[in-house]
Amino acid sequence: MKLLEPLAELEQREETLRQRVNALSVEKKKAFYAAQGENLKDPDTYASLNWFFLGGFHHIYLGKYTIFFIEFSILVFSIIGLFAGVYAVVYLLIALALYELPQLFFSQKIARQHNYDMSVRLFNELHPNQRLK
């Protein structure tokens, strides 16, 4: 995930991918778009999950289960700690919020980058002789 990557660079990489896919034969294009359609993630859905649900549920949407488990565990541990009177866990909650805040602000970009990375992997699997970076 490249939060600080300029949006213009991401758009340029997406355009390069589109051009490479458009240069394929009709059958190969159909195969690529069929496989891609099954795996694309909606940036608005990702942003909504990020905005409305605490504990990293937006990571499940992108298939990042390990990150979800870590964030959710920290959240649950912190809440239990607060009820137990261990107020030092507030620092964990603050750290979690500081980690999540940039993801909230860049959620559209994160989902687009995820879709681009998935599309490049798919393109490279289907066309190993025409690999993209």
Rank of each mutant, 00 (worst) to 15 (best):
1 M>H: 10
2 K>L: 08
2 K>Y: 05
3 L>K: 00
5 E>A: 02
6 P>C: 01
7 L>M: 12
9 E>I: 11
9 E>F: 06
13 R>K: 14
13 R>F: 02
14 E>P: 05
14 E>Q: 14
14 E>A: 06
15 E>Y: 04
16 T>H: 14
16 T>Q: 14
16 T>G: 08
17 L>D: 06
19 Q>N: 13
19 Q>R: 14
19 Q>I: 04
21 V>H: 04
22 N>I: 03
22 N>F: 05
24 L>P: 01
24 L>A: 03
25 S>A: 09
26 V>N: 05
27 E>G: 05
27 E>F: 06
27 E>C: 01
27 E>Q: 15
28 K>Y: 01
30 K>H: 15
30 K>W: 11
30 K>Q: 15
30 K>E: 13
32 F>Q: 00
34 A>M: 07
34 A>F: 12
35 A>I: 02
36 Q>G: 00
36 Q>K: 10
37 G>H: 04
38 E>K: 11
38 E>C: 02
39 N>M: 15
41 K>G: 04
41 K>E: 08
44 D>Q: 11
48 S>N: 09
49 L>F: 10
51 W>H: 12
51 W>L: 15
54 L>R: 13
54 L>T: 10
54 L>N: 14
54 L>S: 12
55 G>R: 08
55 G>M: 09
57 F>I: 05
58 H>L: 03
59 H>I: 01
60 I>Y: 11
60 I>F: 12
61 Y>W: 11
63 G>R: 04
64 K>M: 13
65 Y>M: 14
65 Y>D: 07
66 T>E: 09
66 T>R: 14
66 T>Y: 06
66 T>I: 08
69 F>I: 14
69 F>V: 04
71 E>K: 15
75 L>K: 07
78 S>K: 05
79 I>P: 02
79 I>K: 01
80 I>W: 08
81 G>N: 09
82 L>G: 10
83 F>G: 05
84 A>Y: 12
85 G>F: 12
85 G>L: 11
86 V>W: 12
89 V>K: 03
90 V>T: 13
90 V>A: 13
90 V>N: 12
91 Y>K: 03
93 L>G: 09
96 L>R: 08
97 A>S: 11
99 Y>H: 13
101 L>N: 08
103 Q>T: 03
103 Q>W: 13
105 F>Y: 15
107 S>P: 04
108 Q>A: 08
108 Q>H: 14
109 K>V: 01
110 I>R: 01
112 R>F: 01
112 R>C: 01
114 H>M: 01
115 N>A: 02
117 D>W: 06
117 D>T: 14
119 S>N: 10
121 R>P: 00
122 L>E: 02
123 F>T: 05
127 H>V: 02
128 P>N: 10
129 N>F: 03
130 Q>L: 15
130 Q>D: 08
133 K>G: 07
133 K>Q: 12
